[in-house]
Structures are given as C-alpha cells and as structure tokens.
Design a protein around this nucleic acid. Sequence first.
DNA 1: CGTCCCGTTGATCCCTATCAAATGTAGTGG
DNA 2: CCACTACATTTGATAGGGATCAACGGGACG
Lengths: 249, 249
Amino acid sequence: MSTNIPRSLVKNLDLFRAVPDKDLDTVLSIARPMRLNAGDSVFQQGQNAEHFFVLLHGHLKVLQTTAEGEQVMVRYVIPGEVFGIAKAMRRPTYPASCVAVEESIVLAWPSAEWDRFMTGNLQFAANALQAVGQRLQDAHTRIKELSTEEVEQRVARCILRLIDSSGEKTDDGIAINFPITRQEIAEMTGTTLHTVSRLLSAWKDRGLVITGRKRVVVRKVDDLIRLAEGEPIESAGNSSTRKSSVQPL
Amino acid sequence: MSTNIPRSLVKNLDLFRAVPDKDLDTVLSIARPMRLNAGDSVFQQGQNAEHFFVLLHGHLKVLQTTAEGEQVMVRYVIPGEVFGIAKAMRRPTYPASCVAVEESIVLAWPSAEWDRFMTGNLQFAANALQAVGQRLQDAHTRIKELSTEEVEQRVARCILRLIDSSGEKTDDGIAINFPITRQEIAEMTGTTLHTVSRLLSAWKDRGLVITGRKRVVVRKVDDLIRLAEGEPIESAGNSSTRKSSVQPL
DNA sequence: CGTCCCGTTGATCCCTATCAAATGTAGTGG
DNA sequence: CCACTACATTTGATAGGGATCAACGGGACG
C-alpha cells in the first residue's frame, strides 16, 4: 500500500535525521496523516497511548490538568517535533492532553511501530533519545525559572521563546505566528491571565509590544531581553541591536 | 583487564535490565569506581562532559546555578540511577553541577563508551530512553506543582517523595535516610530556608514530624499526604488523636 | 445585532520573601 | 574535656508581589 506522503516531508525532521531512505519509505508507508481544527484534541490525559505523532504544520499545546481542574501548559509543539511517545517510555497512557491551537496537520503511527523503528534503525533510537533529552533540559530550565524568577521575567522569556520558534517579521515588528490568548501565556508561565494582561498593557504603554486579541507583536526585542534577565528598564531608549538567544520552550 | 566489580552490582540496575551477561562484563571491564565524600563534586555545570555515571551508594544532588548565584536542585540521585549522560543527548558540556550530599560511591565510564553501549545493545538504548522519559515526567510534574500549588503542599510532597525513595523505618517513624538541610529542601521546592523552617516547626508542633539538624522523621504520613493534596488539617497536636472532622466551606 | 469570548482595570488581601538576630549543634584543636 | 568556630535552625517584624474578587469594554462570528 502506498501513501502519497512525499519522503521530503519527514526527511528533514530531527527524529529521522540520518535515517536511510529505504527505512524512511517504510516509515511513511505506515504513517497516517490527520488534519485538526483549532481546539481539536489529539489525545487526552490518561487515554491509552495508541499512537505517536509528528507535527507537520500548525501549533499544538500539551496540557496537564491538576486535581482542581487548573491547566498547566507543559509544552508547545512546533512543526517538526514528535509528541505522544508515551509508549516509548513504557507508559501505557498519555500523561497529558494535547490540543491544536490552530489548524494543524500531524502524522500518526501506531505505538507498536515504535519498537520496530527502534530496533530497525539505531540512528532512530539515538535521535529519539536526543529529542527527549532536549525536552528534559527545557523542563529543567523552566523549573529553575519558576523557582527563582519573578512573573515579569518569566512572561518576557516566554514571549521571547515564542517569537524565537514561531516569530514572523511584520511591518510592526516580530509577531507570534499563531493565535495565543492571555490565558495560554498564563498557563505557560505559572501565573494568571490578569497578571499577564497587566504586564502586556504596561509593555504596550512603553512601546515594547503591540497587542491585540490573541495577538502579540514585539517591537523592541532587546528591551524585552533586558526584562527577561531581570535588569531594570531605565529610559525609553531605542533599540534594535541584539541577537535573540533564548532557550526554547 | 579485569576489575573486581562484581557483576551483581549492575545487573539489577534499570539501565542494564535485560542486558546479556557477556555485554555486562564488557561494561564492567571499562567502569571505573569512585568514592566521594560529602560535599565532593562529581562534575560542574559547563564542564566538558567526559564521563557518565551510575550511583551505587549514597546520595547526590544535581544543581543548576542561576545568573544571580541562586541554586536550584533539579534532581536528587538515588542509588541505581544514571546521571551525567549529557553526551547521550549530544551536549558537549554538563548542564548542571552534581554534588555528593553524603559519602557515596559511583561508577564512571568515558562518554565515548555511551555510543558503543547504544549500538552494541538495543535493550540498553531502550532502557536509557525510558530512564530519561521518566525524568521528563517527573520534571513536568514538578512544573505543574510549582505553577499551581502553595509552598506548604510542595514541601509536604517533597518530604513524602524523599521518604518514598530514601525512607528508613525507625522507632520514631519514617526517617529520611541521609542528612538534608532546610536549605536543600528549599532548593527543591522553590522557596526559602526560612519558610521551610517555619513549616517544619509548625508540623513538629502538631506532631506530624520530628526534626533535627539535617534530619527529618515523619510520624504521621497520612496527615502529610493530606497536606500535600491541599486539604487543611484540623487535628490537635496531641499524640494519637485521629482526625475526625473537617469541613472547609 | 446579539452573544460569546477575550481582554482590561480597579480594589483588596494574604502568602511568602526579606531583613535581622538570637539560639543550637557538630566538629576541631589545644 | 572545653573553648572556639562554623554552620544550621528558629523566630520576629515588615513589606510587597501577585492572586483573587468584581465589573466593564470590545471585537468576532453566527
């Protein structure tokens, strides 16, 4: 059975880096593509982990729900990343829920295939380990930030990461590529939508950002970097001379 | 070349589970054992990742240091666990520092061996992936807690985890197996030693724990569990008054 | 054009970090 | 064995960052 998924779609994904073409073709022959609308859920916390996925297009969020019903965004998935690999870690169920924040396209494989991929191709195993390792790093970074930084720093960092991974240059500045609410930013930074709103308003007044409904555009990246690093913002200095070097989400 | 490390030492470690004996012997022949005194550092954040390790005996802490010099404990290493596998994630340097909190014994391998292990034995690769996956889970859980829970809950959970992984039954209750300071508990829970001290004092007054210098003994595990889940406790501090009533609004 | 959502803003409160000292405890060397 | 020192812990007082409570304004979409 042959699909019409072009090999080029997965060839450049980190997970399949340096995997021989013939193996890629096998991989693709089993893949099932899925289209998701904004708000559609890919899987729910606690569900049986029957598939694992790669995001081809769009944006997803991975949420953990607390006993009290609060939601914490554990991760943002950007195109090219694997997600839902619970089975790879020998967990029977998904530890979090995954929801599309905009129209998205994913590839899905039955979890059982994971072991085949692993045993069939050593490069694949190493790639997977690296991907998970990177996420562990990111998680540790976030723990450090939650433990030691103030809300304003964390929100600034969050915005910086978003424009880093999903920024788009516009006439007004660098815009976040996809719709995002104050509530979602709050879930990413461990605060409330009220506080995020106040911060964005203050930044807007100072000319650092332009805000809109589900929209954030950064005008002065280096001022934001300064905030992220906890440095006080002195005067209304102009700005456009720094590189964005922020760790991903 | 033969070492005097008995095969049984590593045979039951998660990392080497289901790895054939002949491979184990190879592994052991390369391993270098090291003894550490309390306070000795195994590696420092930023250092070249020249080895990876398994803890055989004792306790280590893994710390990240912030730009301002504050320390955050990202992980506690207990006997049987791997650590320092930066190279496995293709990072050239260690992302954190690792320090012994008491006398400990570790096995060390040159980082270059990692790839040999990975390619030589698929089971090993799968084990490693699972181990890192488990840690990712734990990190996510911690992020959730830091984001949504109050300090008392977090500290309660922290103590519970410690007695879970390193608890020792004594006449007085369940004691944490190794010396631990208020400062260290604070670094694990994202708070200050002052707040930890106040909490432990309050718990002591209510008979939940016995405290001492670098020592915590839990007397009423289930009350602590209740605290960890955010339920208020009403019981008066006397010896064995069981709880019978709570009705928060 | 009405109805959700999303966002903004004010007022208030309280948890917890901070600042500041005093007390206790292990370890060491004379 | 004791004095000395370094480190751990406790506790009080104070202040402030954000959460929480409460309304209202505004854009999008059916």
